[in-house]
Structures are given as C-alpha cells and as structure tokens.
Design a protein around this nucleic acid. Structure first.
Lengths: 328, 328
DNA sequence: TTGTATGCGTTATCAG
DNA sequence: CTGATAACGCATACAA
C-alpha cells in the first residue's frame, strides 16, 4: 500500500502539499500539481480513508438499521438509501435489528465506534432511547421515534382513508380492518384513518390484529371470516396481511372481488404478481429512503435541522381485488 | 469522545496496559485489571475502531457487492451474509453494482480505501478482472469469476436436470426452456442440465432467452407460446421468468398445470404466493450466503484457501404448476 | 507485569 | 505558495 509520503517523495514536494492537492484546500503551485499528479498515477496511489477518518474524526459511512432486509418492504428502501448515499459519496453499512433492542443497541454502539457520519434508523422502540446516547446525526425512517429526531414517514392516516373510502365507494358495507402489531405507530395511524373513513351510515366495521406476515395473517383471517361470512370488504394495514386475506378467501371459496373486496397497504412488488392482483395503497418507498438519506446528509454536512419531519403521501393503486367499475 | 489515555490516566496505568487489557494480549496484573475496568465503566469508554484499524491495517468490515438488493434473490442472501458477519463480529457494507463494471470498480476501490477485511462479490464479469488488483480476500458468490477465487455456487446443472426430469415424469413431452442472459454462467449451466435431461425419445425441446424479469419474460413467452401452442412444459431458469410464463399462459387461456406445466428456478418467496403456486428448484439461498461469509472470514483470519470452491445442491419444491399425481 | 517510545497515513497549524 | 511538525487514538517492540 503506497502512502501520501511516497507520493510526496516521488513528486519532490512535501506531504502537506500533496494533502492540500488531494483536498483542494489551500494553494498548490502549477508545477507541484503536475508532478503530484504524475506521481499519483505512477504509484497508483489511493488515499487511506481510515487515516483520514482518524485525523478528521469524520467518515463517509452511513449506518442503516432496519428490522430485516428480507421483509419485502426494505430492499427498495435500502436501495434508495444506498443510491442516494452513492450519489453524495457515502457508503452504507447494513444492519438487521430484528426489532431486537439488544441487537439494535449493539449496532448503535458499533457504528459509533466506527465514526460513522450518521445513522438512519427504522425502529419501533418509542420508549426506549438508546439512540439518545449517540451524538451522531440521526434520521428516523418509516416510524417516528422522537419529536427531536427528523423523521420521514408515509402519511398513513391519509392512505388508510383513501383505501377505506374507495372500498365503500365500491359498494362494500361490512368492513374488516386488519391492523398491524400495536407497537407500530404506523399501524395505529392506519387504523385511525380507517375509522374516520368508515364512520358513516350503513357501514359496519370490525378490527382484528395480525402480524405483517403472509401465513400468520392467513390463519387469523381464515378463522375470522369463517365466523363472519358477511364481511364484504377488507382493508389490510399491510400487503402481507392483504395477501393472507386473499389466500384465506380462496380457501373459503369466497370470490374476490365479487363476494369480497380487498385493499392492502405498502405497495410491495408481490402485490402485483398475485392473482387477482392486489389493489393497494402504495407507499412511495423509494422516495422515503431517498428523502431520509438526503435529510441525513444535510445534517452531516452541517445543518442542524432538528424538528424537521417529512410526510410523504401514498397513492391508491387500483388493481383486481376491488371492483370500482360497478359504481362509477 | 473519551480515549484510551483518559482511561489510562484515571486507572493510573499506562495506555499500553489498557491496550493489553482490551486486546487480551500480554499480561496485565489483577489490580491493574480492576482499576481499568472501573475506569472504563466510569468514562463510558468505547475504543475507536478507526484508530485501531490504522494501527493494525485491519478492520472488521466486509464488503458485499451484489447487482441489486431489489432483485428478490438478494435480500435473503444479504441477510445470510450479515447474520454470519454479525456472529463473527464483522459488519457489512452493502454495494449495488447494477452489473455495471464502472460502478463495480468504483466500489472495489472504495472498499480497498477503507481497509475492509474482505469482499464478497456477485458479478458476471468473467473476462474483466478489476478484482485482480485488489489484494484483499475475496469470495465469489453465485457466479464464479476465476478459478483462483474461492467460489460458492448452487449446483445449477443438477437442479436443472431435477426440474426437467420431473417435468417429463409428469407427462410433458414438448418442452420449452427459458434461459437467462448469455453472460450468466449459472444460466448456461441450467440450460445444459435441461439439455442432458431432455435428450430422450419423444421429447421435443425449444430454448429461448429472457432477462430475469417478470414483465420482459411475460412478453417474450407470450409471443412464443402464441406461435407454439403445442408446448406442454416449461422449465424457466429463474422464478421471475417462470412467473412471467404463468402470466403469459393466463392471458392466452392456457390452463396451468392442466394444459401446460411450469417449473422455475431460484426459490424466491413470491413463487409461493402466486396462483397457482410455483413448482421450482429452490436454491438454498441462505446457506449460499452463509457459506460465502464463513469462507471469507476463514480467509481473513489467516487461511489461504485458494481453489476452495463449494457447490450447494438445490432442492425441488413441488407445488401447483405441475401435476405429478397423475403419474405417480 | 508494566511503561516508554514509535509508527500507522492524514490533516491542519504555523512559520517560512 | 510550501514545508516542518504536531495531533488523531491505538498497538506493539523493546526496556525496565
């Protein structure tokens, strides 16, 4: 590994000058510049980011802590973060927390040790606050953690309202809402949206809870529908549950969308590949990640944007599990 | 940020002793140990990995270069790598190359600058060899890059043979193979497996190529099937193409599996959620990632295992796009 | 068993 | 415009 002093020696200047050249800080004469450039080429020199990091106490690494990259919601998010990081010259470390406080804490510490420039955090742990110890720039993604921390989320309530209104417009009157785990603020907001939209004449509502998981949701919904065959519309707080609902309906011989309509939430790819394809409230996942990354980088590069929070509108994507045409 | 000398001062020992304590290298007396421990607690000291890295020229960061985390094959792979890294105390930097040589080269260099401990690489660029410049430990994943480099792959040929044999056993006689891009060695192997298995009496075969992409595959296959309605069995070299085939068949009014059977390759989650669910040759994706990570870490921690390559057997998962029962 | 001194590759300060 | 030189935080050879 060739170092800055090798370059300096070959170029017959001092390391200081080379450093200045490298960072475009301070002056460096024309001939110095020349010889430095050729020396660098000659030696195939690549500066050590580690040494630079030690000296400046900064780095170009961003930590991304998410529950699980296998969860279909996160690959696109991660990709957006990585793309944006790449664009601004940063690099991202991927951490899967499994919603596990211990693991999360571990990563937080590990990232701190590495002088990472900042952290993007997707966590449900509102009350816990290990993240308060870290002095680094943080952005909360998808799930707010504290009013102090800049946050990027989807407008969940609005999305849920969109879905429910649509379900009703399509003729559903007996609505079942599949909420997510109680700990998810996002799920709560979706349920609220559902409730305000369904508070109408002639609309019956039920709410049950399920994990955001195909199989678990399928079982729960299967049992529920067996005992409540009059349900004719489902708003699921996640596409995973929506697909579970679809399967449950299939097993029960309930035709979708003829006998029962379904609207999901998230906009993950699978929704489009399932049969019938899923009508859903799509979060703008890519934009979510991109915005979070940009917000973080802004912070890293100086600005102190406390309290800045961004809420992104989701979009209703009408596919085959609803039958709007009948009512238009 | 508190440093090792803060600890030394408070514990009234030298930094060397603290360092020894930290790394469990060399001796450190009982009372020294005591005071150091309390000092560390007291100060909430966390060693700087950057400084350590500079000093030792090592790090605990692993670079993972994949084409695109959004591609449904990679999240599980990434997760496996990350889990294994975590287990051994490493951390992973995620890089999406988009199969783009320039981007790939960029990442390779960037990772080198960071003194990463090693790199796991999924690339198709056999002939290109920017990776030869990097002296770091490397493991090729999913796609071999050179006989010098330890490689972890699925036994593609065997898997393809498995699929094709099964298709024939299920009564298909007019077989269409959807290959992947020519540049993928893995795809080539699968096609070979298909060919050796279908070289039998009374079996007709066709081979067409498609990108590993739902929509592209759907179009290509739709066109092909329209002109070749006698095809009664499809072996797709990826689940993505298989699902494309499913959709194409659906649009053409071809019933699956009654009129035509389909077997995919990969074993990604969507295959199980599509209707009818996809019979496929499932790669052991998690094991693939895990093995690669372990191999890399072995290398990092001393061993020079050149030429060590591991080939993992895939498994046929029988679901609803085939109709074995008729022939058992 | 412990401490001193030096190096790791850069940045940055401060005289020239 | 340029060059010594002191940090940065830690590891380690060498002394003690």
């Amino acid at each position: 590994m060739t170092t800055i002093s090798d370059v300096a020696r070959l170029a017959e200047v001092s390391v200081a000058t080379v450093s200045r050249y490298l960072n475009e800080s301070g002056y460096v004469g024309a001939k110095s510049r020349q010889s430095i450039e050729t020396a660098i080429k000659e030696l195939n020199y690549v500066p050590s980011e580690v040494a630079r990091s030690l000296s400046t106490k900064q780095s170009d690494i961003i930590g991304l802590i998410i529950p699980d990259i296998k969860n279909p919601f996160f690959p696109e998010l991660a990709r957006a973060v990585e793309d944006t990081a790449f664009e601004y010259g940063y690099t991202v470390i991927l951490c899967n927390s499994d919603e596990n406080p211990t693991k999360e804490k571990h990563y937080l510490q590990k990232l701190t040790k590495k002088y990472v420039a900042g952290i993007i955090l997707t966590t449900i742990l509102e009350q816990e606050s290990h993240w308060k110890d870290v002095k680094l720039p943080i952005v909360a993604l998808d799930r707010p953690i504290d009013s102090d921390v800049p946050t990027v989320t989807t407008n969940n309530q609005k999305g849920a309202k969109l879905a429910t209104d649509f379900l009703i417009a399509c003729g559903a009157t007996n609505l079942l809402c599949i909420s997510g785990p109680e700990a998810f603020v996002s799920s709560q907001s979706r349920v609220e949206g559902f409730q305000t939209a369904s508070r109408k004449k002639n609309i019956t509502t039920h709410i049950i809870e399920s994990a955001y998981d195909f199989d678990i949701a399928e079982k729960i919904i299967y049992d529920y529908l067996k005992n409540n065959p009059s349900v004719d519309g489902i708003f699921a707080c996640s596409d995973a549950s929506a697909i579970g609902a679809l399967k449950a309906a299939h097993r029960l011989g309930i035709r979708v969308p003829e006998d029962m309509q379904i609207v999901g939430f998230d906009g993950i790819q699978v929704g489009n590949v399932v049969t019938p394809s899923l009508t859903t409230v799509a979060q703008n996942i890519y934009q979510l990640g991109q915005t979070a990354a940009k917000l973080l980088i802004k912070q890293i590069e100086g600005q102190k944007l406390t309290n800045e929070s961004i809420c992104i509108d989701p979009e209703l994507i009408i596919r085959e599990t609803t039958r709007k045409e009948r009512f238009e």
